[in-house]
């Protein structure tokens, strides 16, 4: 039931939003400037993600897009992550390609104790070999929640009445590093796979599960 629910959410998200994630620049044609991605995996929770991207060429190829992801659970609207940004192919040399990724990130989190809305950013680099039908690359980046608004529940306030709601500036973030690969199917489909680890900027804040895993389906049109 939950898987069906997750699949429904993915489809709904695709219908309403868009994204860009794993891009094989060599498989994009002049008549295929739009990309829809559906991803599922682990990213600080088991998440479903969907998005849309559109390719432009400003000196170098650029894909601008948005994506939206939610962790699984009974309540699918209390926590989510939305990203808007661009991926720019900065180097192309034979089959080798390097892509710079820049995203602004909006996150929302809620549990019994606190509701957090957070603005942040992600900067990453993907580099590897790209052919028209497949690609394999390594990736590295840094993800940081820059400013967050906290509103605490009565339960939290009963434990600590002087707790302060408001905007908070964090002092850390997470690096991520891993690999990704993709295979083109037919004229317009791409299957992709990402796996890697996250590393807290400060060792004491290591994530409970410091890994990510993503299976993706891209549709070009």
């Amino acid at each position: 039931m939950k898987k069906l629910f997750a699949a429904t959410i993915i489809l709904l998200a695709v219908a309403e939003a868009g994204l860009s994630q794993n891009i094989n620049w060599r498989s994009l044609g002049e008549d295929q400037r739009n990309i829809i991605h559906l991803n599922f995996g682990y990213d600080y929770g088991v998440t479903a993600e969907a998005g849309y991207g559109r390719m432009f060429t400003f000196i170098r190829p650029v894909v601008v897009g948005v994506d939206f992801s939610v962790p699984m659970g009974e309540n699918l609207v209390d926590d989510f992550k939305a990203k808007i940004g661009a991926q720019i192919e900065v180097v192309e040399m034979g089959g080798f390609s390097a892509t710079l990724r820049i995203f602004s990130i909006f996150r929302r989190y809620e549990n019994e104790l606190v509701r957090i809305v957070s603005f942040g950013s992600e900067l990453g680099l993907v580099a590897g070999y790209y052919s028209p039908t497949w690609h394999a690359a390594g990736e590295f980046g840094f993800d940081k929640s820059i400013v967050s608004h906290l509103k605490h529940s009565d339960v939290m306030r009963s434990s600590y009445p002087r707790i302060r709601n408001g905007w908070y500036i964090p002092s850390g973030g997470h690096f991520y590093y891993g690999i990704q690969a993709g295979k083109t199917l037919g004229e317009s489909l791409d299957l992709s796979f990402r796996v890697g680890a996250t590393e807290a900027q400060h060792i004491d804040e290591q994530a409970a599960v410091p890994y990510y895993l993503q299976l993706g389906l891209g549709i070009r049109f």
Binding site: R107, Y109, I116, G172, H202, E205, A208
Partner: peptide
């Protein structure tokens, strides 16, 4: 997922 998701927001 509530337990895990907050790791990406609260840092320090």
């Amino acid at each position: 997922n509530d337990y895990l998701f907050i790791d990406q927001i609260v840092t320090g």
